[in-house]
Design a protein around this nucleic acid. Structure first.
Lengths: 224, 224
DNA sequence: CCGGCCAAGATTGGATACAATATCCAAAAT
DNA sequence: ATTTTGGATATTGTATCCAATCTTGGCCGG
């Protein structure tokens, strides 16, 4: 007699599920910058007690996605412009190096996945899909190297910066520019040109940073 | 009448204190790789309930210092050699770039702090003091740039790798070599030579990586 | 009308109690 | 003797309850 074998020990705890949901909500911008995370409210939404909610919030704080002050509550981190710039510098540094190390021995499966994401990104029409396919494209390439810690650092940086980028893609021709740049990066990867892929990736991120900071500075000047 | 002004709202929660203590214990190697963290035991040690202990463990997991499996417990992460190597590559990449960005506008106070740490490191005789002063030296330089996220990434990487380095410094002439390399890095910073400081920092970390990996591979070959 | 003060509700932090799962050991069956 | 099975114990995950702190709204004096 045969069974369908499933590993039940890998079922996620309530704290895991709440954590992932809150993280995604912050990254996607569903929770606004500075918004307060009320434990009771979240617990009710997931039909659990506040205990797993508090564990989830503790983990979010470790990622820098929320800031908590004792007895006051947890708030979605609102990054100053200077820190956004810093995060993009880090991204350019780490992601370009990650690409360089991956390209020298690129897995065809990863390339195919990246191309699929590239196509989906080009055809997507709403910002949510852009962000999703954009991340899928980049991570498909980085992940090919099987480097957990590079991926971990990069994902953390993306989680911190995505909600700022999202507004950017919506307002400008950023998406079209990104499609063109992705195509070049993909071509460099397929040709095995590691240095070019690294330079293009760094430039891609620097470009996004520049236009994002320009807009943020305008906005800040206008509002106060 | 004058008061000593202290911000009571900054008193740390029990979870904060337990988290910091566990983190330091793991980083310093007081808790061995693979060791299990028993909630009840830790709670008793700090005279608190398991609730803040669980929050602390959740945060440690987010840092990659422990791994938890549901209903089985939390264990100090035992990194495979390949990941240790990856972490050192990341360190070389990020720390050299951090130095480069700091040197162009170096704060004299930070330089003085780095030199003090350098002297203390040279005169220290036990591995615990070495690790402490070594980190103090490097972080004094990086911190001068006031770049929270660079510092955050670097500290995470140091937290993950320090316990492996510690054994290294104990067993070889690593400490003397490190003193000499620190002197060169410090000189480059004082002279405002950013590129040199960056190259020396990268080399310093690569050197440590090489000798550490050599020893780890020998050890693994010997033990099985 | 305004700002300070105080009480009551709201919210977070932590302790205790209970539920779900794992681990270990003894007894029984082959 | 080995393996299996049932249950006792230990450990983790979550709910409920209490304590500490914050916040809000009304009252008071100016």
């Amino acid at each position: 007699m045969k069974f369908e074998r499933t590993d039940l020990s890998q079922t996620r705890s309530a704290a895991d599920i709440v954590f992932a949901a809150l993280r995604d909500a912050i990254v996607k911008g569903d929770l606004e910058n500075g918004a307060q995370l009320r434990q009771e409210e979240i617990a009710a939404a997931f039909n659990v007690s506040r205990i797993p909610v508090r564990e989830a919030i503790a983990r979010l704080e470790q990622l820098g996605l929320v800031e908590t002050r004792r007895y006051k509550g947890a708030f979605v981190t609102d990054l100053p412009i200077q820190e956004i710039e810093e995060i993009f510098r880090l991204r350019a540094l780490v992601e370009s190096d990650a690409i360089r190390r991956v390209v020298v021995d690129m897995d065809p499966t990863a390339l195919a996945e990246a191309r699929a994401a590239h196509d989906a990104f080009a055809q997507a029409t709403d910002p949510a899909a852009w962000m999703e396919q954009n991340r899928r494209f980049h991570c498909a390439l980085y992940r090919a190297g099987q480097q957990r810690h590079y991926m971990g650092v990069i994902e953390n940086l993306l989680n911190l910066s995505d909600r700022y980028l999202r507004a950017q893609l919506s307002l400008t021709d950023g998406q079209q520019k990104a499609v063109a740049e992705h195509a070049l990066i993909l071509a460099a990867c397929e040709n095995g040109d590691a240095d070019l892929a690294a330079r293009l990736t760094a430039q891609h991120i620097e470009d996004a940073k520049t236009s994002l900071l320009t807009r943020l500075n305008e906005k800040r000047a206008a509002s106060g």
